[in-house]
């Protein structure tokens, strides 16, 4: 296994936004981590990249193992070496990953010079090859440009190139296309998927969009209020979701043949971390809730954490 997250709990000050989160990711695999805002998905990304100290977060239980090594046991300098070199990060806003006053070429070059020890010329050749592979037209001209001269979609492709340049084994992409136009979104997600498969990398794709998950992911982990609600292969989960939350999330997106008036959304809102209900955290919004749901926390068994799973779901 490339990445194993086991029973991970995270605290920030007095609050515990993540509780007992576990999933794994193999090489050549795309895992979708899906949830609404406030579900803890970005926090999971921070935990996996060892960036929790940035927000004063602490792992209070469980492990994050990358290629067999426990990240919590690593000293900060080893963690820093891991990040960038073996774990690449793609964020929602490309400008947070770019230096506004440096040319694009130099910013991509530095990744392979730093992490692979390439010479300036070799690094530039690699950069050009990467940009071309990411279907950036006139790659040489783009290398001489500054970030502000590029469109949002182009910038996001550059950030992906920066992440790929160091030849990482794992890429963590946190909502990489949310800020982009629809046609550009489709392109970028597809490019990212292609590169990951071709290089045999692991991709942890964090998104709120079940549509994106359905189109590119191999497996999916559904996160709700800091806990895993359901986990499994994309085909099975979309065909026969076991958790009512998963079902509801899928049904939130209208598609061909959705009858007018049948879109309802999920009643209520994700509880804030200070007001998590007892038992299953979804029960106040759940149409299938039974008394037990408000009393005990459902364990994650057979890929779902639900006392009253939907009929016909995969065992």
């Amino acid at each position: 296994m490339l990445l194993e997250v086991e029973n991970l709990s995270v605290t920030i000050g007095q609050i515990s936004p993540l509780e007992g989160v576990g999933f794994s990711l193999d090489r050549g695999e795309i895992l979708g981590l899906v949830g609404e805002s406030g579900s803890g998905k970005s926090l999971t990304a921070l935990a996996v990249t060892g960036l929790l100290p940035l927000i004063d977060g602490r792992v209070t239980a469980g492990h994050v193992r990358f290629a067999g090594r426990d990240l919590a046991a690593l000293p900060p300098c080893a963690l820093r070496a891991l990040r960038g070199k073996r774990i690449g990060l793609v964020t929602q806003n490309p400008m947070t990953a770019m230096d506004p006053v440096q040319r694009i070429g130099a910013q991509v070059d530095v990744m392979s010079r730093l992490h692979l020890g390439l010479s300036a010329a070799a690094a530039r050749a690699r950069t050009l090859e990467l940009l071309t592979r990411l279907r950036i037209p006139e790659a040489a001209a783009v290398c001489d440009a500054y970030p502000h001269q590029l469109s949002g979609g182009m910038k996001q492709r550059i950030v992906i190139a920066m992440a790929l340049a160091a030849e990482p084994e794992l890429i963590v992409a946190d909502e990489p296309t949310t800020a982009l136009d629809v046609t550009v979104q489709a392109q970028i997600i597809q490019l990212l998927g292609e590169e990951v498969k071709r290089r045999g990398l692991g991709l942890l794709l964090i998104t709120h969009d079940m549509g994106v998950v359905a189109q590119v992911c191999d497996r999916v982990a559904v996160l709700y209020a800091g806990r895993i609600a359901e986990l499994g292969p994309v085909g099975g989960i979309f065909a026969r979701p076991a958790h009512p939350y998963t079902r509801a999330l899928i049904d939130c997106i209208p598609r061909e043949g959705t009858a007018p008036g049948s879109l309802t959304g999920i009643p209520g809102a994700v509880p804030s971390v200070t007001t998590y209900p007892l038992g299953c955290r979804f029960h106040p919004r759940c149409p299938r809730a039974r008394p037990i749901c408000s009393a005990t926390v459902p364990p994650l068994l057979n890929g779902h954490a639900c006392h009253n799973p939907l009929e016909g779901a995969d065992g």
């Binding site: 279907r135 046609t183 079940m210 189109q215 994309v234 997106i253």
Partner: peptide, 23 residues
């Protein structure tokens, strides 16, 4: 192209996009 770019929440309807090229 807009239609083909929308992400349908159904892995059975997965398809390879012919992405729009050009700027």
């Amino acid at each position: 192209a807009l239609m083909e770019s929308s992400f349908i929440p159904d892995p059975a309807a997965r398809r390879l996009l012919a992405p729009l090229t050009g700027e």
